[in-house]
Simulated scan of single mutants.
Amino acid sequence: MLYRYSPDKYPLEGLEENYCRNPDNDEDGPWCYTTDPNQRFDYCDIPECEDECMHCSGENYEGKISKTISGNECQSWNSQTPHAHGYIPSKFPNKNLKMNYCRNPDGEPRPWCFTTDPNKRWEFCDIPRCSKYATPPPTSGPTYECLKGKGENYRGKVSLTVSGHTCQRWSEQTPHKHNRTPENFPCK
């Protein structure tokens, strides 16, 4: 039996393995051919994306919240008033700096924005974390048990410094206070 949709005919549609896809832009969403001889294809049950919540530190947040924690309205990213800044949307096309929506273009603990209050340059936004049942964001790549590059994807268990000191737990604030906590950086 010949299938109309195959990886050879549609190389840009992600038709790998047996994953649900929507190569024909079907209005009912992603589907797949089934292994049941009596049912040629069926639609897939895929959870809706949660736009008004964030995963991790909100680096991939694409929602439309545009107010800060204290209720300040966000300044548009393509505006330089009341605060001049270097986050020009055309210079950062991958950061989704649209309208005046809260974003996290620089790896802060959560999305933020420049405010329209001339006395408050920027502020974090109050965006809830997505439920543990929500579809997680795509991983940023493989993780390693050894050092590769700068070690940003290292996930091994070494907890002793080169000078022999035991590492402080990330969740602890003694003896050193810091903001690199599991709550602020849940995916790191």
Rank of each mutant, 00 (worst) to 15 (best):
Y33R: 11
E145C: 05
P111A: 07
C49V: 06
F185H: 10
E17W: 08
Y43F: 15
N72Q: 13
K177W: 04
S159D: 15
Y10K: 05
S140D: 15
I69Y: 01
P23T: 12
G63T: 05
D106Q: 01
R40T: 13
C32H: 15
T81R: 10
D26K: 07
S171C: 11
W31Y: 08
P128N: 14
P186Y: 07
Y19Q: 14
S6T: 15
C113L: 00
N179E: 06
P186K: 05
E172Y: 10
E52F: 04
N104M: 02
C74G: 03
H83N: 01
I127N: 01
C125N: 04
N96V: 10
C146M: 02
Y101C: 01
C49W: 05
C44G: 06
D42S: 15
C20Y: 04
W170Y: 12
Q39W: 03
Q168M: 06
G86K: 08
P7D: 11
G151L: 06
S76Y: 03
P109H: 12
I65Y: 01
E62R: 15
F124D: 05
R103F: 02
W170T: 02
P128S: 15
S66M: 07
T139F: 01
E52W: 12
C56M: 03
N104Q: 04
N94G: 01
S57G: 06
C56K: 04
I65R: 04
D126F: 00
I46K: 11
S140M: 07
S140Q: 08
K177T: 14
C102Q: 03
G58N: 04
T139Q: 07
K9G: 13
Y87K: 02
C49P: 15
E13C: 03
D28S: 14
I127R: 08
T34L: 10
C125G: 11
E123A: 07
Y43H: 15
T34E: 05
L147C: 15
E123L: 02
N153W: 00
R180V: 08
C20Q: 02
S159Q: 13
S90R: 09
C187H: 08
S140E: 11
E50T: 14
G149E: 05
N38M: 09
P111W: 00
N22Q: 11
P137D: 13
F185C: 07
G71K: 12
L147T: 09
N119F: 10
P136S: 10
H83Q: 04
R4L: 15
G149Q: 09
N153E: 08
H178R: 10
D117E: 10
S79H: 05
G71M: 07
G149V: 03
P138H: 00
P93Q: 04
C49A: 07
E183D: 14
Q75D: 01
H85R: 08
S159Y: 07
T161I: 05
R103I: 02
P175Y: 08
L12C: 06
D36E: 05
R40I: 08
P182S: 10
S70W: 01
P11E: 06
F124V: 02
D45Q: 11
G86C: 00
S70H: 15
C167M: 05
M54D: 01
C102N: 00
E17P: 00
H55D: 14
K132G: 06
D24H: 13
S79I: 03
P37W: 04
T174R: 14
G151M: 04
L160N: 12
N179Y: 09
G71T: 11
P47C: 09
N179C: 05
Y33M: 06
E13L: 11
K188E: 12
